[in-house]
Amino acid sequence: MNTRGRLWVLIGPPAIVLLAFFVLPMINMGSFSLRQGSFGAARQLWTIEHYRAFAANEAFQRLLLRSTWLALATSLLTVILAYPVAYHLAFKAGGRRMTLMMLLLVPAWTSFLLRILAWKLILGSEGLFSVALQALGLMQEPRPILLYTPTAVVVALVYSWLPFVALPIFAALQRIDVRLLEAAADLGCPPWRAFVRVTLPLSVPGVAAGFFFVFIPTLGEWVTPALVGGADGVMYGNIIQDQFARALNWPMGSLMSLVMLAAMLGLLGLLVGLARLLRLDLEVV
């Protein structure tokens, strides 16, 4: 087979998968957002009334904004908590590295739903915090702590994402040549300064990977808020789901999904631009 033929054999399957499960659904969603209704004759009618409705609906926009904040907070918190874990694994764990890595990863092998539901128990009225507060006499009767608030959503999500953020940061830290840190010390840096000037900038690719790994799915998250978020913890993802499953307004659901996608791309662009401005290398050196 000639080179061109082999190239097509290699590119073909992934191209077909992408076309079938990414490009076509996107086109379908785009076209659906311009239909009047979900079924029958209304489905054949083209209109931009949903765009008008969305633009007029402040509740939707507030929710999108709040979900963005929640996703940002979740990603930042996860990165901040995962960094020391990754740092310890990369530089300090020595012979215990494999054991610690297992301890970090094994809980993540249980079902995502189970882990979220576990938090429902932990934060519930019979849960760890409630019982502890009662035992300390700080609370008189069983009450859920934080459960059914946006904070509970962040807590549960940070917990679930932590191992997956620690790993890319660990990988980035592990790639750092220890001689660079010796060179920094040699040039007069005390350890903390070597960390700020060498370790931290060189781990940016791992931090960025971890951050986006959390931020992107969290923005569209709807399972966790449905389980532990309560009325105040509703996220944008939940109302998208409502449009499809309850209101049966597929055009509006499609439109809202597209808006979220645009918002996400815009934010990512902003963050990448910011990184450029700070002259941080997002690519693996």
């Binding site: 040549d177 001689r179 660079l180 010796e182 060179a183 920094a184 010390a185 040699d186 040039l187 007069g188 840096c189 005390p190 070597a194 060498v198 900038p201 060189l202 290398d281 050196v285």
Partner: peptide, 18 residues
């Protein structure tokens, strides 16, 4: 090390890539 009046040229240079 960071307070010694010496400097080192490393075998593979150890230049900061960033």
């Amino acid at each position: 090390a960071h307070r010694r009046p010496v400097n080192m040229v490393f075998q593979n240079y150890a230049l900061f890539p960033h």
